[in-house]
Amino acid sequence: MESSDAIDITLPVDRSLIIEELMNEYGDAIVRLSFTYTNNAAAAEDLTQEIFIKCYEKLPTFNQQASLKTWLFKIAINHCKDHVRSWHFRKVALFDKLLPGQTKPLEDDIISREESNALASAVMKLPIPLREAVYFHYYEELTVKQIAELTNGNANTIKSRLKKARERLRGLTGGYYYEK
């Protein structure tokens, strides 16, 4: 098959055959597209499965105003954007960015992961202004001045928020939080 646009989808048609052809033709491309949104291979594969399920469910509504390929990619883009905007993705992405994994022996990795999870949980417990300052400073690596400009705040206020955040993080993590 050269292109899914050649697929005859006039009903009645077995939707599973059409989806199977779409998966064979565009499956890898949808995984790559999903990866560009998530930067996570496992999440991209999960999203791809969800996208093809959604296509299967929506196939009867396809009105052939666009090509089947265009329709599939539009569904994929919208699904990926919804995923990236979701609370779960933002929380997981924040944890991953604040606490990047490292290659270590298994015991060190387990201990490090527990500490990282505790720190990430503690960051998520901070009030939004403090969490925002921590996020921009440590994840986005912005300077205090840049954060102040971005948030329409005062540089001294941002410094104060970072100091309060570090103090609270020490308390929330049992004192093992330290700045590197």
Results as ranks from 00 to 15, higher is better:
Ser34Pro: 09
Thr61Leu: 12
Lys164Pro: 05
Cys80Ser: 07
Asn39Arg: 15
Ser116Pro: 09
Ile19Thr: 00
Leu99Arg: 08
Ala42Gln: 12
Phe35Pro: 06
Gln65Lys: 12
Met23His: 07
Pro60Tyr: 04
Val144Leu: 05
His83Tyr: 12
Gly175Ala: 07
Leu169Pro: 00
Phe89Cys: 07
Gln49Cys: 07
Asn154Tyr: 08
Gly27Ser: 03
Glu2Lys: 11
Phe136Met: 13
Glu179Thr: 12
Thr38Asn: 01
Asn117Glu: 15
Ala93Asn: 03
Ile51Ser: 00
Glu20Val: 05
Ser160Met: 14
Pro100Phe: 00
Arg170Met: 10
Tyr139His: 13
Ser121Pro: 04
Pro129Tyr: 10
Tyr56Ser: 06
Glu132Lys: 09
Leu72Asn: 07
Ala148His: 08
Leu94Asp: 09
Leu130Ser: 01
Met23Gly: 05
Glu167Arg: 05
His137Ala: 15
Leu17Gly: 07
Phe35Ala: 07
Arg131Pro: 06
Gly153Val: 01
Leu68Tyr: 03
Phe52Ser: 00
Glu21Gly: 12
Thr70Gly: 02
Ser160Trp: 11
Glu25Tyr: 13
Leu162Glu: 00
Asn63His: 07
Glu140Thr: 13
Arg15Thr: 09
Glu20Asp: 13
Leu11Lys: 03
Ala120Phe: 01
Ala43Lys: 09
Ile19Arg: 01
Asp5Glu: 13
Cys55Leu: 09
Ile7Ser: 12
Thr173Val: 07
Asn40Arg: 11
Gln102Gly: 08
Ile30Arg: 04
Gly153Trp: 01
Ala41Thr: 12
Ile18Asn: 02
Tyr139Phe: 12
Leu106Phe: 12
Ala148Val: 07
Thr70Ser: 03
Glu140Leu: 15
His83Cys: 07
Lys180Trp: 05
Asp46Glu: 10
Ala76Thr: 04
Ser116Asp: 15
Tyr26Cys: 15
Ser86Tyr: 10
Ser86Glu: 10
Gly174Glu: 04
Phe73Gly: 02
Leu142Glu: 11
Pro12Phe: 05
Arg168Lys: 14
Glu45Ser: 10
Glu167Ala: 06
Glu114Thr: 13
Ser16Thr: 11
Ser67Asn: 03
Met1Val: 14
Trp87Val: 13
His83Val: 06
Leu162Trp: 00
Gln49Tyr: 05
Glu115Gln: 12
Leu99Cys: 11
